[in-house]
Amino acid sequence: MKIVVLVKQVPDTEWERKLEPATGLLDRLTGENVADEINERALEVALRYKDSHKGTEVVVLSMGPASTTKALRKALSMGADSAVHILDDALAGADVGWTAEVLAAALKDSSFDLVIAGNESTDGRGGVVPAMVAEHLGLPFLGSLNSAEISEQSVSGERRGEVGTLTAHASLPAVVSVTERSAEARFANFKGIMMAKRKPLATVSLRDLGVDPAALAGTGRSVVMTASQRPARTAGKKIIDEGNAGIELAEFLVAGRLI
């Protein structure tokens, strides 16, 4: 079985994230960039299958700027076998549509059985790329899985809904996405980190993928027009409870017409 995990490098959510005021694009250069937590979970789902099924190959695939290799090395150190990095200047400012088209082009001839993605990235919060990839490839898509069970022929699991959940399955090859209720990711150990240095990490361009940048430009694309920063919130009144704080809070709420 060959499993491809889609990994996106994002600004660490632990820190204040910034948009460039001139372009409204994400500032991917300053601050810490990491593999999105949800993608570590997606990788964990693949690695657990690999742990119990010898001969499983796990490839991580990412499209992003040069620094993306860091996220890919992290994935390799956790246990992925190889990595593919799509890097091309023509992709600066790519939206979800372009991203999906390019990821699909990279997947098209890679004879995978299963693609596992995160249900939503923490920077864009689009939650659309995996379904778009599936549509490009003409494959079933089983999104937002809280749990994923992989077998030779199919993938199944509990899918998050708006009010409840449902269980569903799809035959392979298929594309799935997982939620943060899915597998908690393992830590990379020292051996993994050392081994990752020798694992293959291929860098491919649009030309390598046979994607014509001019053709991409013909696809509808969302573009940012303006971005403005809101002033940060400031702290208000803070009291220490000396036995009366509940009553003081009630008074505060009354004064603010909140009760």
């Binding site: 549509g97 689009g126 995996p130 549509e135 490009h136 696809t219 509808g220 694309r221 969302s222």
Partner: peptide, 14 residues
């Protein structure tokens, strides 16, 4: 997402 691919439209999320 799937409609955007089919129509080659532009998707604006959230």
């Amino acid at each position: 997402a799937r409609l955007a691919v089919r129509t080659r439209g532009g998707l604006i999320a959230d």
